[in-house]
């Protein structure tokens, strides 16, 4: 029982990263119809930024947790204005190539300066201990990540469903043409939403720095699973991406724990789930079939 709870907890912690990344991808896809391949690179920049801030300027984790997402959001907005924006009217493949190219450039720039060897980043001292849950104890930092990620997801959900800004963004996301017909300037919202998605990726990166290897390829490894998560949740579905994020984290953890005698299954379980979901619901668990235009 204790083991099951621990594995569940761990699954949720991994899931928290998937959820934060998938949420960003989902809002970007919803608003711009752009599959942002560079999402993993921004996650990596978040972690690296935290490392650079700490070693070069002595900026602690807590400050980095604010500085990096905001800084990357601004960078994201600049990139949207400079490049992504110009290609949204063309075949989606163009933006696909653009963001893929951006990934390679960002990765290699970091590689050039810091090499491929992972860089050290310590857990902030306030979160270094462990929390006793009676049946088992758990690293404080992991508890913090889980709580923080849930808070961010709930916050985003609240903004999107309960505020006027959120209403406009949701309308722009789901029915851009119709929203435009109501006299709302959809274009004005595109850049901030892109920046916001990138900021979430940066935030996940900073959170990952103390517990994952910080190196130029850390995002490239993770992003493949995150794409599967987004597809399972339903492309563009905000709730779906978060739910699928946590769900996949759980499935992976349970798979590793209880299917360890079948490594082939436990290694590919995410994609097995994806295939099954797509057969059953081609638009993903919470996605809506595109109405014929």
């Amino acid at each position: 029982m204790t083991g099951f709870l621990q594995n569940t907890f761990n699954g949720l912690v991994s899931g928290a990263f998937y959820a934060l990344l998938a949420l960003g991808l989902a809002v970007i896809f919803g608003m711009l119809r752009v599959v942002n391949f560079a999402h993993g690179a921004f996650y990596m920049l978040g972690a690296f930024g935290a490392y650079v801030l700490l070693t070069e300027a002595g900026v602690p984790f807590w400050a980095a947790l604010v500085i990096m997402p905001v800084g990357l959001a601004l960078l994201g907005m600049a990139l949207e204005r400079a490049f992504v924006h110009r290609l949204t009217r063309l075949d989606p493949l163009y933006n696909f190539l653009l963001t893929f190219g951006l990934t390679l450039i960002l990765q290699d720039l970091v590689k050039l300066r810091y090499g491929v060897q992972s860089s050290p980043y310590e857990t902030p001292s306030a979160l270094n201990g462990s929390v006793d849950f009676g049946l088992f104890d758990f690293p404080t930092y992991r508890v913090f990540i889980l709580g923080f990620a849930v808070a961010v997801c709930v916050g985003v959900w609240w903004v999107l469903t309960r505020t006027r800004v959120g209403m406009v963004v949701r309308a722009c996301t789901e029915r851009p043409e119709l929203t435009r017909a109501f006299g709302i300037d959809v274009g004005r919202w595109v850049t901030p939403v892109f920046g916001f998605g990138i900021g979430l990726a940066g935030l996940a990166g900073v959170l990952a720095a103390p517990m994952r290897a910080v190196n130029p390829l850390m995002g490239a490894d993770l992003i493949i699973v995150v794409f599967a998560v987004v597809v399972i949740g339903g492309l563009g579905s905000i709730f779906g991406s978060v739910a699928a994020g946590f769900g996949i984290g759980l499935v992976q953890a349970w798979g590793e724990a209880y299917l360890s005698d079948f490594p082939i299954i436990s290694q590919t379980i995410v994609f097995i789930v994806m295939a099954v979901v797509l057969l059953w619901r081609p638009a993903g668990l919470f996605g809506r079939e595109e109405a014929p235009a």
Binding site: Q6, N7, N10, V13, S14, A208, R212, A213, M218, D221, L222, I224, V225, G249, Q252, A253, E256, A257, P263, S266, Q267, V270
Partner: peptide
């Protein structure tokens, strides 16, 4: 799993 895409070995 190799490569371990989740980066997590806690199990």
């Amino acid at each position: 799993p190799f490569p371990n895409t989740s980066g997590d070995f806690s199990t």
